[in-house]
Structure formats: structure tokens, C-alpha cells
């Protein structure tokens, strides 16, 4: 009898794992709560470090899902999962019940709710937006303006919003925001060649391939300026611009400046779906709220529950490159497990 895997979460991790498993002749059911597959990447515009159109990624992954072994249920959420003699039974909001030999959790991450960072005034000040809002704006329009319609002359990108911040409830590094800030700063500069752009960072974590090069390009070619210091507060001026404060830690002096637009680089936080399903299944979480691995080096797709595997950002923030690799690795682990 063909073995069957239920994959929960149809972002890029779930999609890649599904196609990899199908190529090994394993039946896959891919369940996604939204109407469409693709997750967060599906809503993104251009990707670091090479400004590739994000649609190329989702298009390619979707293409690979066209296989007789793959069944897809969108607009479907999980209501319950039980395990009987090594087999799983998955129930959904569409009143369906599916049997599975193994389950892959690829329920991804949630975006940090920037309103929690009260002192930055997201949702209160007119010209404070998030990196996700900016990406939408870049996707939808050729011009970038302040709320008033005026062209901004100075823009600040604020790193680590909801990351490395215990007060906001998350001490982990979201990994992708530094390079996203650099990418978006360049894109903004391309749209607004006369604007001054400042990145306020604590550390610049340029660990990935071509990240450091992009950082240097941002400085050298685009004149993006970098201030090392965490923003302490923002306040709205009479004209809707913002007065922001940080320490310029490299000169050891407090600094204030006015900016027309402030972009908060919001982090990745454990998704509600992951927490919900994880608790239902008795899965162990680490202190950061993401799913835990007992062996972080050699068994990074395994959970403490035999038969339940992980792929992608359910275990920690990841780039697309890392997520895809993680999904393939999960598929291999599952294939070994069910045979």
C-alpha cells in the first residue's frame, strides 16, 4: 500500500517538501488554511540578495506540485489530530478526515505585530510603516510617498523591531531583516534618488551568500547611511514627519533627527498555527517559542513525537534558501521513516 504524508502549511516549505516526496512516489496531502499556496513569499515583491521577482519562486514551486501523488486542500484548517497504533488521523474544518503515516508541520511564522512596540507609534503616527507595508507599496505603485502624498526626503529603516527584544517578548534574531533592510533601502533609493536613507541597526548580520556584497553596494553605489544604535522612541512633528532618537553608539553620543518616513523591519515570530498544533500534538517548544529539536545539528527535521517532522520557519527564522534546503531534508527524513 502507498504510504501517505499529510503536510500542514502550504508556504514554500510545504510546497517544496510535497514535490520532493511525490518524486519519491509517496502520496502527499497538502493542507493550507488560506485560499492560495505560497505563504509569505507569495505576497512579497522582490527578494534579496539579487532582486529576483518573488513570483518566480512560487510559480516554480507550484509547477512542481502538478503530480498524481499530490492532493491539495486550500481554505482548510486543522481541527484535530489523533494517533492510533502509529497512524495519524487528521480532521479538518471541511469535515474531512485523513489518515497519514507521517505528518509534516510547515506552518511557518507570523509577522511581529509592530503595535506592540508602543514607543515607535505604529498605527498612531501617519508615517510609520512596516517592511511588509513597504514591500506592498513597492509592489503596487511606482511612487513612494508620505501619508500626505508628499515625496519623502529622508527615510529611516529601523532594524530589529520585535527581534532581540525581550520587552516585546522575543529575544531571538529574525535573521532576514538586516539584509531585507539593505535590499529595501536600495529599492527606495532607486525610486527616490534624492532621498537620504538611514539604517538604524544594532549589529549588521550579513552572514549569507552575497549579503556583504549587497551591504557594500548599498554604501558605495547608493549612499545608504548606517547608524549603529537602537531607536529609543519616535514622536510625530507638526507636519507629520517624525523625530527619532537613538544613541550613535560609535561616537558614544545620543542622536536625534527628523525623518519623513520610518520603516520598521518587523521580525518573524512563532506562528499561532504552529503553537496550536504543537500543543495539540504534545510537541516540545524551545524558549523562543519555536519548535525544538533535540539534536540541533544532525536531526533538525525531527520533533520529539515520532512520525511528526518539521520544515522551514516553524523551528526558527530562515531565508528562502535555507527553507528550501530544510524542506528537502525533511522529505528525505520522512521517506526514510515511513519505509
Amino acid at each position: 500500500m502507498t504510504k501517505k504524508v499529510v503536510i500542514i502549511g502550504g508556504g514554500i516549505a510545504g510546497m517544496e517538501a510535497a514535490s520532493t516526496l511525490s518524486r519519491m512516489n509517496i502520496d502527499v496531502l497538502l493542507i493550507e488554511k488560506k485560499q492560495q499556496l505560497g505563504g509569505h513569499v507569495g505576497e512579497w515583491d522582490h527578494l534579496f540578495p539579487n532582486f529576483r521577482n518573488a513570483r518566480e519562486i512560487t510559480r516554480s514551486l507550484l509547477y512542481d506540485l502538478q503530480d498524481k501523488h499530490i492532493k491539495i486542500c486550500t481554505s482548510t484548517e486543522i481541527t484535530g489530530i489523533s494517533k492510533k497504533s502509529g497512524k495519524f488521523e487528521v480532521r479538518t474544518t471541511q469535515q474531512q478526515t485523513f489518515k497519514a503515516d507521517s505528518i509534516l508541520l510547515s506552518t511557518g511564522f507570523d509577522l511581529f505585530d509592530a503595535r506592540k512596540k508602543e514607543e515607535y507609534g505604529y498605527g498612531i503616527y501617519e508615517n510609520v510603516i512596516t517592511s511588509v507595508d513597504l514591500e506592498q507599496k513597492l509592489k503596487e505603485s511606482n511612487v513612494l510617498t508620505m501619508a500626505s502624498g508628499v515625496i519623502p526626503k529622508r527615510i529611516a529603516m529601523i532594524h530589529c523591531v520585535g527581534s532581540r527584544d525581550e520587552k516585546s517578548g522575543y529575544f531571538h534574531c529574525s535573521k532576514v531583516c538586516c539584509i531585507t533592510a539593505v535590499k529595501q533601502a536600495i529599492e527606495v533609493k532607486q525610486k527616490l534618488p534624492h532621498a537620504e536613507i538611514f539604517c538604524f541597526y544594532m549589529d549588521l548580520r550579513m552572514y549569507g551568500k552575497k549579503f556583504e556584497e549587497l551591504y557594500r553596494e548599498a554604501q558605495e553605489k547608493w549612499g545608504i547611511q548606517f547608524v549603529r544604535g537602537r531607536l529609543s522612541e519616535a514622536a510625530e512633528n507638526m507636519d507629520g514627519s517624525l523625530q527619532i532618537k537613538s544613541e550613535d553608539t560609535l561616537s558614544g553620543r545620543p542622536l536625534k533627527m527628523n525623518v519623513d518616513l520610518m520603516v520598521l523591519m518587523i521580525g518573524m515570530v512563532p506562528s499561532e498555527s504552529t503553537t496550536f498544533l504543537g500543543k495539540m500534538l504534545g510537541i516540545h517548544f524551545s524558549e523562543d517559542g519555536f519548535i525544538n529539536h533535540d539534536d540541533i545539528h544532525l536531526e533538525n527535521n525531527l520533533t520529539n513525537v515520532p512520525g511528526i517532522f518539521t520544515a522551514g520557519t516553524v523551528t526558527s527564522p530562515m531565508t528562502i534558501t535555507d527553507t528550501i534546503a530544510d524542506a528537502r531534508s525533511a522529505a528525505l527524513k520522512i521517506a526514510t521513516y515511513i519505509s
Binding site: R115, E118, G121, Y122, G123, I124, Y125, E126, E236
Partner: peptide
């Protein structure tokens, strides 16, 4: 300034 944002904080 969006008052509804402040109301949410209050």
C-alpha cells in the same frame, strides 16, 4: 496622528 491607534493602547 491616528486617534484610534492611541485608543487601542489606552
Amino acid at each position: 496622528m491616528k486617534t484610534e491607534g492611541k485608543k487601542r493602547v489606552w
